[in-house]
Amino acid sequence: MLNALEVFTTVVVGLMVGVEFSVAFVINPILNGLPGDNGLRGRTHGARMLGAVMPFWYIGSLVLSAVWAIAGWHHQGAGLVVIAAALLIVSVIMSVVLLVPINNRSKTWTTENLPEDWKEQMSRWDGFHYVRIAVIITAFALLVSALA
């Protein structure tokens, strides 16, 4: 049963990393390259859609990692899982404190109500997102290492 939990947790976290990586390095660059306000429309739609799903994914990943750490406490690699869970806690805190406030503002933006500093806010969100990606990639790598 522990093996199934380990694999399932690693897959869930890995998929989350893949989605967040693709947002940063594929989707947002594509949207930023669109003419007019089309990119902004795509980003605000993404903020609404992913903003509804990602909290469950982040918390779920954290819970799964914590359960793995507890259930596998006396097994090899438990320390790596604990560190990965701690990094996932950091990612949740970063999300709530740094990214969600910007996301909540941006998902209501239209071309009629754009704040003057909207590009700076998007750039700030992107910067925080890059750091968060580094954190969750590290957590994922630790979980994979714990499997080996």
Rank of each mutant, 00 (worst) to 15 (best):
M1F: 08
L2E: 06
L2Y: 11
L2F: 13
N3L: 07
A4D: 06
E6C: 02
E6H: 12
V7Q: 03
V12M: 14
G14Q: 02
L15Y: 12
V17I: 13
V17C: 09
V17W: 01
G18D: 11
V19R: 06
V19S: 11
E20N: 14
E20R: 04
E20Y: 10
F21S: 15
A24C: 14
A24M: 13
F25E: 11
V26G: 09
V26E: 06
P29E: 07
P29D: 04
I30D: 10
L31G: 03
L31F: 13
P35R: 08
P35N: 13
D37H: 10
D37A: 13
N38K: 09
G39L: 01
G39P: 00
L40M: 14
L40W: 00
L40V: 11
R41E: 09
G42K: 00
G42P: 01
R43E: 05
T44W: 00
H45S: 11
H45Q: 09
G46Y: 00
G46I: 01
A47P: 00
A47S: 10
R48A: 14
A52T: 06
W57A: 15
Y58N: 10
I59E: 03
I59N: 06
G60H: 04
S61R: 02
L62I: 04
V63Q: 01
V63T: 10
L64F: 07
S65P: 00
S65E: 03
S65A: 15
A66D: 06
A66M: 12
I70E: 06
A71F: 04
A71M: 11
A71E: 10
G72P: 01
W73E: 08
H74Y: 07
H75L: 07
H75I: 03
H75R: 10
G77D: 01
G77K: 02
A78L: 05
G79N: 04
L80K: 04
A85E: 00
A86H: 03
A86W: 01
I89K: 00
V90N: 05
V90E: 08
V90C: 13
V90S: 09
I93E: 06
V97T: 15
V97H: 08
V97Q: 12
V97E: 09
L98Q: 12
L99P: 01
V100W: 06
V100T: 14
P101C: 13
I102H: 02
I102Y: 01
N103Y: 02
N103K: 04
R105H: 10
S106M: 15
T110S: 09
E112H: 12
N113I: 08
P115A: 13
E116I: 08
W118N: 12
W118T: 08
W118K: 03
K119R: 15
Q121G: 13
M122Q: 10
R124H: 11
R124W: 04
W125N: 06
W125K: 04
G127T: 12
F128M: 06
V131M: 03
V131P: 01
R132M: 12
I133E: 11
A134H: 03
A134T: 07
V135P: 01
I136S: 06
A139F: 08
A139N: 09
F140C: 14
A141P: 03
L142Q: 04
L143K: 01
V144L: 15
S145M: 14
L147R: 04
A148F: 11
A148G: 15
